Structure formats: structure tokens, C-alpha cells
Simulated assay, not measured.
Amino acid sequence: MSIRSLFSSPRPAPVPRGRPAPRRRARGWTFAPLLVALSLATACSSSPGGGALPGGPELMKKSAETMRSVRTVAFTIATEGRPPVPVRHAEGSLTSEGDAQGTIQVEVLGALQELAFVLTGDTVYFKGPTGGYQTMTREQLSAIYDPSAILDPAKGVPGLLAGATGAKTEAEEKIGGADAYRVAVHLPKQMVTTLVPGVNQEVDGQVWVDKATSRLVKASLPLGGEANAGTVLVTLDDYDVPVTITAPAK
């Protein structure tokens, strides 16, 4: 056999007259576009780690159950833009018993008022930049903002997650150095008001659920429209870290 014959294609055998030529079988490469399309479809429904993303409703249910067992948490509420809510910033720590302490910035007639607060029992201690502590009832504070409701099993974060509809897991992301699932959700107005007072609309937002613990670590809530539009960002961390909250000295 010659070298040329090794690299040349064999000639097809002659077809006898009166008999149709045999059909050639489709080559394997004709299925390549289909395989590529299937690969892309699989990649679009998978997490960066290669596994499929969990369903949104299942994540919300599991996170709601997990949040009901939380004993303490640190929280931060911040705003971007001009969302139509009076609270501009708040941060502090709270317990499942309803005690809390921290600071809050509230916009009053276009000016920011910052208050330090301590909630113990039915009494709220608060003070401005100068002077000592004054007191009000928890009911009076709730007209402004009651952060202790965040862990309330019915109307706090557990109820917010349980009442979310249209949940769809969008991606896996890093939040505070930990892996979390980002989930698009539709939230009822009465539930959002617990986290952010003054909300008078339903919200299509996003929540991030910690992959390892199923705890809520972040929520993004777009509010308002046109000139009065913005986003409220809620972050939760330091779960179950011991917290001691006592009445301040007068």
C-alpha cells in the first residue's frame, strides 16, 4: 500500500444501473448544535458550584422555619436614593424576647433626627445627641419604628418569608464572605411594614438566604417611584451571639 493511499478517501463502489444510490448516514457533528443548546440550558439553571439551584418556595419555607428559632441578631437598615419612608438608617441588636438596643435616624420635616434607644420590657429609653434618656411606651415607639418586631414569629422576618409569593432562586452569591442564594420575591405590604415602617405598597424585591444555615442575611426592597424612589437594604448577622440589654442609668 502506498503512502498516498493512507491519506486518500476510498472511492465509493459503483452503483448498479436501475438501483437507487444508498442514503448516507448523518454524521455525528450534525447533532452538535443540539448538544450545545442542552448544555447552555443546564448551565443557566445551575449554581456556580455546578449544582442545580434550589427552588424558591422551598427556600422561603425552610428559611421561615429557621428564623423562628433565632435567639439574637444584629441588624442594619440603610437606604439608597429617596424611598418614601421616614427611617433612613438604623442599627443595633435585639433578642427574641423583644428587647433591643441601637440607634435610629428618622427624617422629620426634611431634617434627620438621630436617637439612641434601649427597649426592655414595655419601656423604651431614648435620647438625642444631647441630654439624658427619656422614656416612652413600646406602643408609642411602634408608630416610628419597633425593631424588636423583626424576630416576631408571626409578623416579623419569619412571617415575611412565609408570606412571600412568586419566589424564584436567581443565583448563588457571596454575602459577608458566606455563600447565599439570591431569591426574587413578591412581598405583601403588611409584612414589609414590620421591617420598614411607612411602606404603603407591595414590594417586588430580593432576599438572600445563607446556603449553610438557611437564615436570612439580606433583603433589598425597592420602593416608591419617580422623584421619591429608592431602595431599603436590610442586613442581619451575628446570629445567636450573646446579648445583654439593660435599662440605662438615668
Rank of each mutant, 00 (worst) to 15 (best):
M1H: 14
I3Q: 11
F7A: 01
F7T: 10
S8P: 00
P10M: 08
R11P: 03
P12L: 09
P12F: 08
A13L: 15
R17L: 14
R19F: 07
R25D: 02
R27F: 09
P33I: 13
L34R: 09
L40N: 03
A41Y: 09
T42E: 13
S45V: 15
G50W: 12
G51N: 12
G56C: 08
P57Y: 07
K62E: 06
A64V: 01
E65Q: 07
T66Y: 04
R71A: 12
V73A: 12
V73E: 03
A74L: 01
I77C: 09
T79K: 08
E80S: 14
G81M: 14
V85P: 04
V87G: 09
V87I: 15
H89V: 03
A90Y: 05
S93T: 13
T95E: 04
S96L: 05
E97W: 04
D99L: 00
A100F: 05
G102A: 05
T103L: 11
E107Q: 15
G110S: 14
E114T: 15
A116C: 00
T120E: 14
G121I: 12
T123N: 07
F126C: 06
G131R: 10
G132Y: 12
Y133P: 06
Q134M: 12
T137Q: 03
L141D: 01
S142T: 12
A143S: 15
A143N: 11
P147Y: 06
S148I: 01
A149H: 00
I150S: 02
I150G: 06
I150Q: 01
D152N: 12
G156L: 01
V157K: 00
P158S: 02
L160G: 04
L161V: 07
A162K: 01
A162S: 06
G163I: 03
A164Q: 02
A167C: 08
E173I: 08
G177K: 00
G177E: 00
R182N: 03
A184P: 06
Q190D: 15
M191P: 01
M191L: 10
V192F: 10
L195F: 06
G198P: 11
V199S: 07
N200K: 14
G205K: 09
T213L: 03
L216E: 07
V217S: 02
V217Y: 04
V217L: 09
S220V: 13
G224S: 11
E226S: 15
A227Q: 15
V232R: 00
L233W: 00
T235R: 11
L236D: 07
Y239G: 07
V241H: 11
P242G: 08
A247K: 15
A247F: 13
A249F: 10
A249S: 15
K250G: 14
K250Y: 09
